[in-house]
Amino acid sequence: MAKAITQIRRVDPTPEELQAQSISKILGAVAENGEAIMKVMDIVSQLDQMGVLDALDALAKRRVDVAEIMIHQVNQPAMHKVMKNGMNMFKFLGSLNPDQIQMLMDGIGHGVDKATATESNDKKTSLWSLGKAMKKPEVKESLAMLITILEGMGESLQREKGHA
């Protein structure tokens, strides 16, 4: 004879039992990863001494307010320009051929070396010597290159103007 009943006695673990369970889980993990945990402790303690943890704590607690202020600051014309310029800069760098730039940079580097070496012999540069230097094939090569760069730049500027 078993009447329909609805009473259920749950043997819920006491708060102490639950706590004991989770502590034993944690201890298990600690025992397994002892060395790594000690290192982390060390880092955490350093950060605390520096006051970083307090700052992070405050930041986490007020995250929405902080995000709102930050995003407001970022959402200004000047910042838009910074971002646009930054991205243009990236695009510019992306558009260059690294081999050619490498060559150019090597050239400039060598030139700078030479320039600093020349400076040390402390002799005044006369117009005459400049004129004479123009005849050197090395100088001619560099000048030709600079002029070509100016030419290309001009073309691009003209194109932009034409479009506008």
Partner: peptide, 18 residues
């Protein structure tokens, strides 16, 4: 992300429009 942070974020994206 809450709306008051999200909207300016979308604005910035549109403004900067990379």
């Amino acid at each position: 992300i809450p709306q008051n942070v999200l909207e300016p974020m979308i604005d910035i994206t549109k403004e900067v429009e990379p």
